[in-house]
């Protein structure tokens, strides 16, 4: 469109381009910097002499003969057994996503289709539950879990994460289901389907975009969780985030902080890939709650 009235004065174009670049630097630079630095030794990444050292890496060259080293990654993944935590994170996220989506689609569908007053109360309760700080809930779990002897196992953590995730999943899927016309399942029921058949055969096939988006957010919750996993898992089956926090506490000696840097980068890369593939779904998910409710 080049209607003269829409054309912008050059000063405004300059200003907005400058602002976008400024924002991009703020948003992306810390990650790129840390990724680059994770291939250096501590003397370069935390350089007393000159911050440029983190880019060129003179100490790394002196110690390893090249400007890049995999020392940090080797230390974290092999020596400190970070790979075990990666597997645990995989298990936890897989089950949390599957279970919360199953429960969430069923519940969200019911909430979207029922017109009784209690749906309002359930949704409001879910909103309050969503606002509960996770650590307050954890302080409620710990003692009973110790008493019942189920503390420290992956399944316990998975169930807890599913439950903590439910309020959000319910809200999101509920608003997605509201956008699907009622006629669709009613027509199926007129044709002789039961309610569940109508749900499975008529609704679910058109619900995939909503389910994928909600699944992404369940994944993020489980992947990013620190509070629940750090308090409910024992030292042998920690997931990535609490494991990485452990590196900070125990590795104050020289060079060990690079293990944490390498682990942090290892935890960021999957998210990078995720955003690359699912950018549109993430954006639509963030706005789903806003536009519809």
């Amino acid at each position: 469109m080049s209607i003269p009235a829409h054309r912008k004065p050059p000063s405004l174009i300059l200003l907005s381009t400058g602002f976008v670049l400024f924002w991009l630097v703020i948003a992306a630079f810390p990650f790129l910097w840390t990724m680059w630095g994770s291939f250096k030794v501590e003397g370069d990444f935390f350089s007393r002499a000159d911050w440029m050292n983190a880019l060129t890496g003179p100490v790394t060259v002196k110690q390893h003969g090249s400007a890049f080293t995999l020392d940090g990654y080797e230390g974290a993944w092999i020596q400190q057994e970070f790979w075990k935590s990666v597997i645990n994170t995989g298990i936890v996220t897989f089950f949390v996503v599957t279970i919360s989506l199953t429960l969430g689609t069923l519940g969200g569908y019911a909430l979207a289709r029922s017109e009784f007053k209690y749906t309002f109360w359930i949704l409001m309760a879910a909103l309050v539950f969503r606002a509960m700080p996770h650590v307050t809930l954890v302080s409620g779990y710990l003692l009973p879990f110790f008493e019942m002897n189920i503390w420290g196992y992956l399944p316990t953590t998975i169930i807890v994460l599913v439950a903590i995730n439910q309020p959000f999943t319910l809200w999101m899927l509920h608003s997605f289901f509201l956008s699907i016309p009622k006629d669709l399942d009613e027509a199926a029921m007129v044709d002789g389907c039961t309610r569940f058949q109508a749900f499975r055969l008529a609704i679910i096939p058109v619900m995939w975009p909503g389910v994928v988006t909600t699944g992404l957010f369940s994944f993020l919750l489980a992947y990013n969780d620190f509070t629940v996993t750090s308090m409910l898992l024992n030292q042998d089956n920690l997931t990535m985030i609490p494991k990485l926090n452990g590196f900070l506490g125990s590795t104050q000696e020289d060079g060990k902080v690079m293990y944490a840097v390498a682990a942090v980068v290892s935890a960021i890369v999957p998210l990078f890939v995720l955003i690359l593939f699912f950018q549109r779904q993430i954006v639509s998910g963030l706005t789903a709650g806003a536009v519809k409710g």
Binding site: L220, N224, I241, Q279, I282, V283
Partner: peptide, 15 residues
């Protein structure tokens, strides 16, 4: 721009 903007939000607060 949206791709890079999403990073700070989606990364774990601790990280």
């Amino acid at each position: 721009v949206i791709f890079f903007s999403l990073l700070p939000m989606l990364v774990t607060p601790l990280v």
